[in-house]
Design a protein around this nucleic acid. Structure first.
Length: 630
DNA sequence: TCTGCATGCAGC
DNA sequence: ACGCTGCATGCAGA
């Protein structure tokens, strides 16, 4: 359609707004750096839209346009649109996710005076429909016509104009985008929020790509692991052999032939009858007891958990064609961490990680940030002593060698206590020594806790703010000041205030760590994209080896990725877990990938904390299966 | 039978 | 009286 690549015309295409219209077409508006439309709104069919994306993305566009700047794609929700593009093997470098960014700006203390924050709740504040079910793609690109809202008269004109180019348009999405740009510009340090919004949006791209690619999962190995632990596979609802044997031993030891160990109530009563004084049937409580039933019971619990959480049923429902496709939810946790839906990707037990196996000729590069949160805290507080303790070494070991505490375990318990707000036990006892050695870091956690106790908002490094406690919280506080308040009113208010203080105390650390992780991943993703494809001339020259494409794993000629999502055949992210990533890569590129991951961690540290001298150390392992890492 | 809540445990 | 989660299961009430 004769598209002019960005940067080559009179006006610079900084952004391209992408909207859905009724009928499955796509409305596309080039925008300038202020978010204003640069020309006419184009109505494209899905096919035309694909060509349009290809023409603009550096990785896929014609050689003549290789050096032009790439635009940032602005759209309502990555989770809705990007899976559809990926299914058509289209990827984009950068985007601006209006919905995710709206949430950040609406709540951020840095933009609280902006028009966006002050506006009454509108359609950008209602919960999204969430991401699409990848197994059942929609019939059309867009299921919902988001632009037939109250304030979208102009779009109706666009629709009325028919096919082809239409009159220059505006839209609620364009106006929302400008509100967001204005809100950022009005902030004290707009650079932080700009980075946060870019990182959050990049994360949304990564999430969709990881779900699309999936984590390599060998069901045959998984089955082997399960069989080894539980006995041969059985039908759902049937107790596997090893579990049945353990259940019989438990019944014998408790002298209760009908006991169902899956019922906490029955089990609790049976334990009482056997003279065991327990308050619950929790594993950690049972562990303290001495009785012949304890060993088989704990074993039963462990195996029973494995069966129900990650047994054959899980395998059948979540592993498709050798890939586990969890549904990541960027921004799904208040602190900015990701959540997941389905498959329990956040809780993948160590027991079954051996089933995560690289394809033939490929490797998994597994990297996790060592002691991420304390390092984040050190940098947030500009605590050079704590940063020094972690320089070039395990931070907890560094605390020990600084003479603050005696053992690594003490250092760890004390640090976690500082970040979570522990006041009792070993952690509470160690706290004064930590506070003496690292006054700045501890003062920061304390002030965040005090702010929360007063009902105030705290803010992460890049500008994500904590929510305001709910009405019930404020009522409880007010009630405690009432002259008629009872002792129990006061106790309740104080307890809730402390709860909220522990939340805000943790929020700044967990939330800033999440921001670091987003920047880390965005950098990894960017650099992975820039790697030469295996089999290409550059790759052959660089590695001196011909890398054969994996059958069925991607395009027949991996060097030609034009128009295709390149991560079919090249290194790509396949897993993320708060402070850990896995990249699936052709073996020949594993070393380069590992280097990219390490460099990205340094870059992320600089993006958040500038020149403050804190190390973000990684544990990196290049392995065939995930179980070998750590 | 369905639904919501509590329990218990997996992860960081 | 230690932060943030997701999920399977049992159990009680509708």
């Amino acid at each position: 359609m004769g598209t002019v690549p960005p940067g080559t015309g009179q006006n610079r295409w900084v952004y391209v707004l992408v909207r859905q219209s009724s009928g499955g077409d796509v409305l596309v508006d080039p925008l300038d750096d202020a978010g204003l439309p640069l020309g006419t709104t184009r109505r494209l069919t899905l096919t035309e839209f694909h060509s349009f994306v290809i023409s603009l993305e550096p990785a896929t566009r014609e050689p003549a346009a290789q050096n032009a700047a790439a635009p940032r794609w602005v759209w309502e929700e990555t989770a809705k649109i990007y899976p559809v593009l990926l299914a058509a093997e289209i990827r984009v470098d950068r985007c601006h996710d209006l919905r995710l960014c709206h949430v950040i700006l609406k709540n951020s203390a840095l933009t609280m005076a902006s028009e966006l924050a002050l506006a009454a709740p509108g359609r950008w504040d209602v919960a999204s429909v969430g991401s699409l079910d990848q197994t059942e793609p929609p019939a059309t690109l867009f299921d919902l016509d988001i632009d037939e809202d109250d304030d979208d008269d102009l779009d109706l004109n666009v629709d009325a104009a028919g096919p082809g180019d239409v009159a220059a348009g505006d839209s609620s999405a364009a106006r929302e985008f400008r509100r967001q740009l204005d809100a950022v510009a009005s902030a004290g340090e707009p650079g932080r929020l700009r980075l946060l919004l870019a990182a959050e949006s990049a994360g949304a791209l990564v999430a969709a790509e990881m779900r699309y690619a999936g984590l390599p999962w060998r069901t045959d190995v998984h089955d082997l692991l399960l069989t080894r632990e539980l006995g041969p596979r059985v039908a759902p609802g049937v107790r596997p052999e090893r579990l049945e044997l353990l259940a019989q031993r438990i019944r014998l030891e408790l002298d209760d032939p009908d006991l169902n160990p899956d019922s906490p109530q029955e089990l609790f009563k049976a334990l009482q009858r056997a003279g065991l004084t327990v308050t619950s049937t929790r594993g950690w409580e049972l562990k303290e007891l001495k009785h012949p039933v304890i060993e088989p019971l704990l074993q039963y619990k462990k195996l029973s958990r494995l069966l129900s959480a990650n047994g054959w049923t899980w395998m059948e429902s979540w592993v498709v064609d050798g890939r586990f496709h969890p549904d990541y939810v960027p921004g799904g946790v208040v602190t900015g961490r990701w959540a997941t839906r389905g498959g329990g990707a956040l809780q993948l037990p160590k027991q079954i990680r051996g089933a995560v196996i690289a394809d033939d000729g490929w490797k998994l590069v597994v990297a996790d940030a060592a002691q991420l949160e304390p390092r984040i805290l050190a940098a947030l507080a500009q605590d050079t002593n704590m940063a020094t303790a972690g320089r070039g070494t395990d931070l907890y070991a560094g605390i020990v060698s600084s003479g603050v505490v005696e053992t690594r375990d003490h250092a760890k318990v004390a640090m976690l206590g500082a970040m979570y707000g522990a006041t009792t036990g070993e952690s509470g006892r160690l706290m004064p020594r930590l506070a003496r050695a690292y006054p700045r870091a501890i003062a920061l956690t304390e002030s965040a806790a005090r702010a929360g106790e007063r009902g105030e908002v705290v803010t992460t490094r890049l500008g994500r703010s904590s929510p305001i406690p709910g009405p019930g919280w404020h009522e409880a506080q007010a009630q405690a000041y009432d002259p008629a308040a009872t002792a129990s009113d006061e106790r309740r208010a104080r307890s809730q205030a402390r709860d909220w203080g522990r939340f805000t105390r943790n929020f700044i650390v967990q939330g800033s760590a999440a921001e670091w992780a987003l920047c880390w991943m965005a950098e990894i993703r960017r650099e992975l994209t820039a790697l030469p494809a295996p089999g290409s001339l550059q790759a052959d020259a660089a590695h001196g080896a011909l890398c054969q494409p994996v059958p069925g794993a991607g395009p027949a000629n991996p060097g030609d990725t034009r128009g295709r999502a390149p991560f079919h055949a090249t290194p790509h992210l396949v897993f993320f877990l708060h402070d850990e990533v896995i990249v699936h890569t052709p073996a020949a590129q594993a070393a380069a990938v590992a280097q990219i991951i390490v460099t990205a961690a340094e870059t992320a540290g600089r993006l958040l904390f500038g020149d403050f001298p804190v190390d973000f150390m990684l544990k990196v392992a290049t392995v065939d299966n995930y179980g070998q890492a750590k």
